[in-house]
């Protein structure tokens, strides 16, 4: 099955399971289904927001797409396909070995969540930004330094700052350095893993705006992972809402933000604070209970244990994503667009 022409990235039936080991010989005693069958499409030039509460698997998807999960947890069980339309043609990243993957790394880069741990404190900013070019370009030393200076100015820093060490920068500046490093190889896909959640709100806006400017200039397609809906709504053309390893709703940003369909999305959105004390929120949906552990997922629909409209059938089979309106999908057969949940 080949990729749709408008897509640059297609994730098909991605499942990521982390084994839980125990006992004297480290046998597998259980598994955490961090991602449980996810399909995603990233169109060329768009920003796809991926939201959900912590532990729902959104960061895992990002790391699976960029294929670095096997490094940090060698025992992880990944199935599915991650198709990427690279310059060389369509490639399934998950089928590549780490060695084969290496030559495609320049095409897809990541911006990390924590600007304090994502930069090696022993290297200067120049060395940090230069490093990807060492692996993916054959630029000479002076060309690399020129590009470092150029990138630093692109992300709103000064070229002279390349001689400094990361600890001499603020959080926002460090995140700009992280962005410059991600852009060093001229990638076409950027996986942004909660790039602003560690920053002050005022700095968040600056970094988001920077990302949007760069997206146009560098022709980037961004998979934007976040838990903050207001941030995602601002930057994303489409939003996917995740709950417990599944996508429960997928649609255009404005649609999801103003007319959520899935009961979970509704609860999630009603939790976004309104910055106006005089305006009372009307239909605030308050969920009861906690998120079940992904080690022991409920049968059928993962959300049924907390769902206000759950019924007996929900325990039977996991509901598929179905179109509720044009380009707007939700994984619940019992709701329709615009209908209030009582």
């Amino acid at each position: 099955m080949s990729m749709k022409p408008e897509n640059i990235l297609e994730v098909r039936d991605l499942k990521v399971k982390f084994p839980v080991t125990g006992g004297l010989l480290l046998r597998k005693v259980a598994e955490v289904k961090a991602v449980d069958g996810v399909d995603l499409e990233l169109k060329r030039g768009e920003t796809l927001g991926l939201v959900g509460e912590s532990g729902c698997g959104k960061s895992t998807i990002g790391k699976a797409v960029i294929n670095i999960l096997k490094f940090s947890s060698p025992d992880v069980d990944i199935t599915g396909e991650v198709w990427v339309r690279a310059d060389e043609g369509e490639i399934d990243f998950l089928k590549l070995s780490r060695h084969e993957m290496r030559k495609h790394r320049g095409f897809i880069q990541m911006i990390f969540q924590d600007p304090y741990s994502s930069l090696n404190a022993r290297l200067t900013v120049g060395q940090i930004i230069e490093e990807p070019m060492l692996y993916h370009t054959d630029l000479s030393k002076s060309q690399r330094l020129d590009r470092v200076a150029w990138l630093l100015e692109k992300v709103g820093l000064q070229a002279e700052q390349s001689k400094r060490y990361p600890h001499e920068f603020s959080g926002g500046q460090r995140q700009r350095i992280g962005i410059a490093r991600a852009l060093a190889t001229n990638p076409k896909i950027i996986v942004a893993d909660e790039p602003v959640s560690a920053l002050d709100v005022s700095i968040q806006a600056q970094v988001i705006n920077l990302l949007q400017e760069l997206q146009g200039e560098f022709d980037l397609s961004i998979l934007f992972v976040a838990h903050d809906l207001s941030v995602v709504e601002h930057i994303s053309s489409r939003i996917a809402v995740m709950y417990l390893g599944n996508i429960v709703e997928l649609g255009p940003g404005k649609d999801i933000y103003h007319n959520p369909i899935h009961p979970y999305s509704r609860a999630l959105l009603s939790a976004v604070p309104v910055p106006n004390p005089k305006k009372k929120k009307k239909d605030r949906v308050i969920l009861t209970g906690d998120v079940p552990t992904p080690m022991n997922k409920p049968s059928g629909c993962g959300f049924r244990t907390r769902c206000p409209i759950a019924r007996a059938e929900c325990a039977q089979a996991a509901p598929p994503l179905e179109a509720k309106s044009e380009g707007h999908f939700a994984a619940c057969p019992y709701v329709t667009a615009g209908e209030a949940i009582s």
């Binding site: 490094f71 993957m101 990541m110 990390f112 994502s118 090696n120 490093e131 692996y135 993916h136």
Partner: peptide, 25 residues
């Protein structure tokens, strides 16, 4: 830590990861 993940995601080899990134830290 993320800077090592960043190293992997930019295609650094184990040797580079160990001697350039992890060991000095």
């Amino acid at each position: 830590r993320d800077y090592v993940s960043a190293g992997v995601s930019m295609g650094a080899k184990n040797k580079t990861l160990i001697f350039k990134h992890i060991l000095p830290n």
